[in-house]
Design a protein around this nucleic acid. Sequence first.
DNA 1: CGCTAATCGAGACGGTACGTCGGGTCTTAGG
DNA 2: CCTAAGACCCGACGTACCGTCTCGATTAGCG
Lengths: 216, 216, 216, 216
Amino acid sequence: MVAAMQSRTSPTPPARTGGRPRSATADAAILEATRQGLVELGWSKLTLGAVATRAGVAKTTLYRRWAGKSELVVDAVAELFDELELPDRGSLAADVEGVVLQFAALLGRPETKTALMAVVAESTTDGPLRERIRGSIVDRQKRLVLAGRKRAQDRGELPVEPDPSAAARTADLIFDVIAGAVVHRALVSAEPVDEEWARRFTLLLLGGLAAAAAQP
Amino acid sequence: MVAAMQSRTSPTPPARTGGRPRSATADAAILEATRQGLVELGWSKLTLGAVATRAGVAKTTLYRRWAGKSELVVDAVAELFDELELPDRGSLAADVEGVVLQFAALLGRPETKTALMAVVAESTTDGPLRERIRGSIVDRQKRLVLAGRKRAQDRGELPVEPDPSAAARTADLIFDVIAGAVVHRALVSAEPVDEEWARRFTLLLLGGLAAAAAQP
Amino acid sequence: MVAAMQSRTSPTPPARTGGRPRSATADAAILEATRQGLVELGWSKLTLGAVATRAGVAKTTLYRRWAGKSELVVDAVAELFDELELPDRGSLAADVEGVVLQFAALLGRPETKTALMAVVAESTTDGPLRERIRGSIVDRQKRLVLAGRKRAQDRGELPVEPDPSAAARTADLIFDVIAGAVVHRALVSAEPVDEEWARRFTLLLLGGLAAAAAQP
Amino acid sequence: MVAAMQSRTSPTPPARTGGRPRSATADAAILEATRQGLVELGWSKLTLGAVATRAGVAKTTLYRRWAGKSELVVDAVAELFDELELPDRGSLAADVEGVVLQFAALLGRPETKTALMAVVAESTTDGPLRERIRGSIVDRQKRLVLAGRKRAQDRGELPVEPDPSAAARTADLIFDVIAGAVVHRALVSAEPVDEEWARRFTLLLLGGLAAAAAQP
DNA sequence: CGCTAATCGAGACGGTACGTCGGGTCTTAGG
DNA sequence: CCTAAGACCCGACGTACCGTCTCGATTAGCG
């Protein structure tokens, strides 16, 4: 899919007045250092001091931009999620299998694996963080579901749902099922998300969708 | 629901010899204090010192029994998960909806919500912890899937799968889909898991199962 | 008292070339802000950032003129010491008592009290600072001793010492005794320097001087 | 002089109850490390973290015992001041010269030089610290004045003052003059306190005392 | 019934990281 | 060239928890 059209990485709007402007390269170095730190240390041993050192940046520079570890990590992994695409594999089933495998590959990366559940755990007691996660990571991936449906409708594999709110509810349900099942398989059950599993899961999902469509 | 067949709450077998035995009440007080602390502070602000104080116990006593915060919290919330049951609601669909709502209610409790994701996050970089979670929480709930299928087969709603390994694979898939979707809906999307959602989800799941059964 | 013959308040000669000239009012504002800061915060809590803010000046401006906190404070309090005078009270004893009380009053001001000892402490490990203190504060007050002796000699209360180096040594001794005793009484013993103490001290000093003069 | 009969180095009474007792060796190591740090870094560059490291002790151990840098340094240098003695040199004048030179030698040590004025400067805005300095350092040295007077009276060099309050006032004055003059000469004027200066100063002091005694 | 040995509370210990503050320097845009 | 503004790197601050340790004081059960 195409790159995000709107940068999400302006952590705090800097109140445009006089003074030395914030270093743009520092931002990139910090986010990259954060991902490296996640890989090498894991979430719980990742310290902001270590990130700063690795990025060649002072701790204060870091705190000027982000409120804490969670916010920083959300921005750092969000960049990875934006790389997800929906390549055209010829059929709806193949497309779903493709996106499932792609998502699983992303969750297999150590920085994503260790970070995702941790920030979600934090967000259960931190409303603003929850909104940040939704805005930066979760909601941005719904585009994959919408694009997949659109393409299937163009192919004639799926009927066009006339009620837009029902369409949205269905898309949300599909998203929760796909993302939830893959995450649970990969991180909680800790079993491999391979082609065989993707095929079986897709069969279940599309079969279920057809059954649900037949019955309002 | 059946009683747990093996107590999981003997944290570290104490090498039975002479000397003063460990206080049994201390264990209960610590686990209860842990749950209270999770509610009031959340995972990341929960400290073992605070648990000890709240339980009226010395830190030493706590470290004698558990290796760290993760292990303690796993044991504390595992007790809650054992309360899940599968009441007979007359049909497979009703049973699934019931267990979905029950699971969602459990995830709505603050101590469960903040603890579950956190320990899973920790477990991504800690193998023994992952095993403890699976043994104490995850695998114990698969009994609900197995019991539900058995009951549906007894009712004649589902055919009996002759191949036991295929049956196990299907049970695992169902478990990942149910648990994953509910967790994602409740904690990540942060939308309510109400009766309407449970009905729509169950429709999708059972429809998918039927389609998958029709096609090897 | 006579005006200082040489301004000490051009902190760093600015290498006179073209360009915008330095603001003269800024200097005064900074020194005044420094004294206010000393009163309200004391030496150790006085920060250059706070001085700059209070003076309505950028930190850059401040660092362009002074090398650090010590140098700035020396200049700020030196202005106060220049206010000391030696009024003619009719006799040597009365003159000494007067200068003692005047000096004690100056040491009673919070900005002087906290700054003087602090910069002297710094100067024990900073040679250039020690010279700055001597040039700006200490040596400038020896004029009071010299003026007092001159006046006493004019009155015939003291003989004229023919050896100039011996005269200088005696003046130095007197200066150390007066300044040292008053500072010690006021800041270390933290007892009041009142008229009664001044009278007793002067009696001791002048008696000692007479005895010393009688014996080479 | 004899060793102090009562330890001043119990920084905070530890509230005798259960628990691990405080390490006695840690105290000594910290005070010694503080003095070393003063010598090598000076007051303003001395950090509590460096003291802790050098003493092989955790920072928390240090903060458990002392409220801050000033308090710690007062205790560290107080031990040095307790080493001052009043050796019997045969006459009052020789005794005074001896104690002046001994005091000057103490002030010549780098740890004392850099610390003394600094803590006094701090004490100008910190009442409890001022009391601590008086109790631990200043008042303890008045014993030298009292011992010197007693010895001179035993020798018949000084008359016995019948009024005890007048005797105390005189002792205080002498103390302020001696300590003040020596400190001012050594630290402010930064001139050597050698035998010649000590002789001249003692001549002035004793001459002044005699004159003051003659005139109530 | 008194030993013995592991437990208990309390709290100090050496560490590591925290988030903040201040010091000086540098980089803007504007006079 | 100066100025105000403010970001930059750096180092220290004082605090909080960690997990370990050292105490004196309890408890059992075994001898």
